[in-house]
Design a protein around this nucleic acid. Structure first.
Lengths: 140, 140
DNA sequence: ACACTATTGAAAATGATTTTCAATATCAAA
DNA sequence: TTTGATATTGAAAATCATTTTCAATAGTGT
């Protein structure tokens, strides 16, 4: 849960470690909800004032390419990113505060086999996302 | 599978029936794959030359509001729309030609109960989407 | 046929993202 | 260390998708 591994990953893939990248990584890695580029910009600039929005975009692009983060699709928009889950995982999003949780253990084999047979498709992949209210937000 | 019911719906909801709307409805209603606004514009202009792109946006907005169409989220982007499924349905998308099929019969109750208990969330909704190759595209 | 007003397309405005570019900072090699 | 090749930077401009504004026009009920 620290930024180090991400920085190492970047470095190992031939990217230089800069203050701008460190600031972006720290914010995104530590977030409990999906953040849009501007949000990352606003938060990261508290750590590194000179940061430019363009660099945020460029850094997010690289983190996504290295599968360290993933884009989150929501009814309100699809610009936000969260740190990626490990292995086969899906997202559970709080509709009130935006908090993100990962889960696995979905077994869609029977369903996909059935749909494949019915439609003639060869099914390669699936997206599953749950929406609800987190424990905290249920109180209010 | 004709445009009439959609036009009726529009009319019943107090919207006027215009040539522009008819052209957009005919294209979207008859499509077998999700179309982005510009694609609708290009196709619909073959039926109604004077159509403006702005009107396409405005008409799609109304169709979505009436639940006649729905936005489709894909790895390449989230701008496209398809005619909406009836009741509780999910999408199956061909990764090659973009063809869209609907399916139902997913039973996620056990999963959502399990996740709800594990995370403390109250789960309200889910998004499920399958990706693969349609029968035609499998040949190639 | 009329009158009210919703709808239209064009142009301008907005918002998100990408490209361009000259200045600067990183890092491997000396 | 210092150095030098070059990856990275932020700002400004460009691009792309979408929305707003507005005056002209077309649909609808009477």
């Amino acid at each position: 849960m620290t930024a180090e591994p991400w920085l190492t990953q970047l470095h190992e893939n031939g990217y230089r470690l800069t203050d701008a990248r460190r600031a972006v990584v720290e914010i995104v890695e530590g977030a409990t909800r999906a953040l849009a580029p501007v949000e990352v910009y606003d938060l990261a600039r508290k750590k590194y004032r000179a940061l430019g929005l363009v660099t945020v975009y460029r850094t997010l692009e690289k983190l996504e390419e290295l599968h360290l983060i993933q884009r989150v699709h929501q009814p309100q928009g699809c610009q936000a990113f969260v740190s990626a889950g490990h292995g086969h995982q899906h997202l559970l999003l709080c509709q009130s505060c935006g908090r993100v949780e990962f889960f696995d253990g979905d077994d869609l084999d029977a369903l996909t086999r059935f749909i494949a047979q019915k439609t003639g498709y060869q099914i390669n992949e699936h997206w599953l996302q749950l929406f609800g209210l987190c424990a905290d937000c249920r109180q209010n």
